[in-house]
Every structure is written in structure tokens, then in C-alpha cells.
Amino acid sequence: MSLDPLTFIFEILNFLVLLWLLKRFLYKPVQAAINQRREDLQKAMQLAQQREAQASAAMQQHQQALQAWQQEQARREAELNTQLNQQREQVMAAIAASAEVEKQRLNALAAQEQKTAQAALQHKAARNALQLSARLLQRVSGPELDSLLITMLLEDLQKLPAQQRNHLHDSAQQQQGRILIESARPLNAQQCTALQQGLSAQLGLDVQCNYQERADLISGLRASWGADVLHANLADELAFFHTGLMHV
């Protein structure tokens, strides 16, 4: 173990040369590569930050668009609800109007039906009344009622206006005073006399009565000459009454 000065000095020079060479050919390129990598990393980091900022901006823009879309959706939904309410109200009003019209129509129809039913009921009641009256009058009919009806006929003729009485006179005169008397039962002499005298007095000429019996007249008589007919019997009165009821 000894110290060789030459080796010592050469080793110092050798190391210094090695230091310079490594610094020149190794450390500087490595440092440059490291710096380049750092720059690349920094650029990549800046690019990433830039992209992150862009992504954040895009995200924010997307959120704003989404928010605007939601607001638009809410607005359109409200508008649609308003339109639907208006349409519903209109439809309900139309339905109500239609229902009112239908109600009125049904009411009118019901009133008509009620009126028809009432009329039918009245007709039925009238028929029943007529039938009942006819049966009743058939039971009460008799010579007394015939006399009463003859008296009524003569009184009614007397109450006729002069014009009508003249017309009856003219038509009787055209028939030469021949009058057909139809009665429900044969008239007695007193009744015939009273009738002939009364007619002659009211018509202003002598009349000649021809008597016929018609049981369907129930009671009373029917006097006819030419086109004129005088009704003084219950059958015709009931028929008049029935006709009058039918026209009510």
C-alpha cells in the first residue's frame, strides 16, 4: 500500500476529463431530455386543463341548454294545460248547450206525448162519457123527452136570425112544404100536431110532415127538407158532442 504520485496525478486528470466528458455527452442530453419531457408534460397538462375548461364550458352550456329546455317544457306544458282547459270549457259548454237543447227537445217531446196522452185520455173519457150518456139517455128516453125536444126545437127555430129563417123558408117552399120527420119512436097525435103547427108558424108556410121511425135516434126527432136538416134528437146531439170533443 503505497501512494504513486504519477497514478495520483493522472487519476485526478482522468477524473476531471471524465467529468467534463460526461457533462458534455451525457448529463446535458439527459437534462435536455428531462426538460423536453417536462415541457411535454406541461403542454399535455395545459392541453388537459384547456380541454377540462372546454369540457366544463360545454357542460355548463349543456346545463344551461337543459335548464332552458326545461323552462321551455314547463312553459309549453302550462300553455298546453291552458289550451286544454279552454278546450275542455268549450266542449263542456257545447255539451251543456247540446244537453239543454236535448233537454228542451225531450221536454217538448214529453209535453207533446203528455198532451197526446191527455188528448187520448180525453177522447177515451169523452167516448166513455158518450157511451155512458147514451146508455143513460136511452134509459131516460121516452115520450116526455120527445115532447121536450120538440119544444126545444121550436124555441130554437124561433130564436134563429131572420136571414136563416128566410133561408129555411125558401128551401121548404122549394120542397112544397114536405118535411121528413124521423123520430126514435112513433109520435103521438098531440106531438105531431104541435110539431106541424110549430114548424108551419116558424117557417111561414103550411108544412106537410111525413113521419118515419128510427130507433137509433134514441129520443127526439130529425126534420129534413132538401139540403136542410133540423136535429132535435139525442143521437145527433151526442154525435155533435162527440165531434166537438174530437176537435178540442
Partner: peptide
């Protein structure tokens, strides 16, 4: 000059490291 083996080896190492660098 007397060149020791250690110095020679050190010089060779220097050359080798330089070439590698």
C-alpha cells in the same frame, strides 16, 4: 512513464463511460 494497472483500468473505464455516454 510507469502506468499502473489501476490507472490503466481507470483510463479504460473513462473511455468506456465516454463511449457509452
Amino acid at each position: 512513464f510507469y502506468i499502473s494497472n489501476a490507472l490503466f483500468t481507470a483510463l479504460c473505464i473513462t473511455l468506456l463511460l465516454t463511449a457509452g455516454a
